[in-house]
């Protein structure tokens, strides 16, 4: 039992991430608003489609605002709830807006005692005919946004471009992180092999690289499935997808190289040298080059990723354990590969 605690821990953590990651509901959000552009000086009605929302419960306490980045806000004059998902908001827009450009993106904010506050960031563009800040300040009926409700239950954040696919953060990203940890381990064992000339270190390096390749393939598959639902295609020839495919090719080449030697000592030595060389060329591949070019992937070009506001604390509660869980399971698989290779090598000696 003492020997197996980390395997049990790995399984438990993964079960926890599957359970929490798939069953926790998303926070209430706004998935759509139409029309998306309004004109100043008119009374305009916006139809809002909510996500996981319950507009009909306590609908008289529903409040809505159009908010500017500088904190100024305009309250909705009337709110007609159609059903739980759809509501019509009517705004009386003054003729002049407190902004110094003709067009500005406003953030739509809805607050309900049942669902808490939900936002559509920069979702509504408002156009005015002329800019006049002095008149605008006089006309603008500023509404203080206060006493927003918080939803009591545990939820994941809602992003209208991601929707439910935000859950892939717990499967795709930790798989990659675990792959990196395990490949780094493999590289370290290759270094140890070259220094100490210990055949077992090379077996460990080989086993870990094997697991790393497996995790990488899983990572690329989960990423492709996610891309199908958010980018529209499994494979978009995005720079990050290309780079990862190349990284997997490099590790594929490592195994082809090993297979082409008969002599176990030579196999281990040349394999270790190539493993270290490949690892050194993998890091610039995966980190620097995608940053140089435009990418659709989260973390590039204003897409959401792991900034402090993008990954909230409930997501961290699942995300970090998932990395540890996948790493432990990877080590377990690696240990099995290691033990079978040891047995095979012993058979060869006999």
């Amino acid at each position: 039992m003492k020997k197996y605690w980390w395997k049990i821990l790995g399984v438990l953590i993964l079960l926890y991430t599957f359970f929490m990651g798939l069953l926790t509901p998303l926070k209430t959000g706004i998935s759509e608003a139409s029309p998306m552009s309004l004109h100043a000086g008119r009374s305009e009605t916006v139809t809002v489609v909510g996500y996981n929302s319950f507009f009909t419960k306590e609908k008289e306490k529903l409040r809505a605002w159009l908010k500017l980045p500088n904190g100024k806000a305009l309250a909705a004059k009337r709110i007609d709830v159609v059903d739980d998902r759809v509501a019509k908001l009517t705004f009386d827009l003054p003729s002049y807006l407190p902004i110094d450009t003709k067009v500005k993106d406003f953030t739509l904010l809805i607050d309900s005692p049942v669902d808490g506050a939900s936002v559509l960031p920069g979702g509504i563009a408002v156009t005015q005919d002329t800019v006049n800040l002095a008149l605008a300040d006089a006309l603008w009926p500023n509404a203080e946004i206060s006493q927003l409700h918080e939803k009591e239950t545990i939820t994941f954040p809602f992003r209208n471009i991601l929707g439910e696919t935000i859950r892939n953060t717990y499967y795709h990203v930790p798989l990659w992180m675990a792959m990196f940890i395990i490949l780094t381990g493999g590289m370290v064992f290759s270094v140890i092999y070259l220094i100490k000339n210990d055949a077992d270190a090379d077996r460990k390096a080989m086993a870990l690289s094997n697991v790393g390749l497996l995790l990488g393939i899983l990572g690329i598959i989960t990423g492709a499935i996610w891309a199908k639902y958010t980018w529209g295609k499994f494979w978009s020839w995005d720079v990050k997808q290309n780079m990862t495919a190349i990284a997997l090719l490099i590790y594929g080449a490592y195994f082809v190289l090993r297979a082409s030697f008969e002599d176990p000592e030579k196999k281990a030595r040349v394999g270790a040298v190539f493993n270290i060389f490949a690892y050194a060329s993998l890091v610039p591949l995966l980190y620097i080059i995608p940053k140089l070019t435009d990418s659709l992937h989260p973390g590039a070009g204003g897409n959401i990723a792991f900034g402090s506001e993008d990954l909230d604390s409930t997501m961290r509660m699942v995300f970090y354990p998932a990395i540890i869980g996948w790493t432990l399971i990877g080590l377990w698989i690696g240990q099995i590969i290691l033990r079978t290779t040891r047995l095979r090598d012993r058979l060869m000696e006999v």
Partner: peptide, 16 residues
């Protein structure tokens, strides 16, 4: 082996 080993390694350089 020369092609298998070197092409993936050289791709980032080629891209740049």
């Amino acid at each position: 082996l020369m092609a298998i080993l070197s092409f993936p390694v050289v791709i980032p350089i080629l891209l740049l």
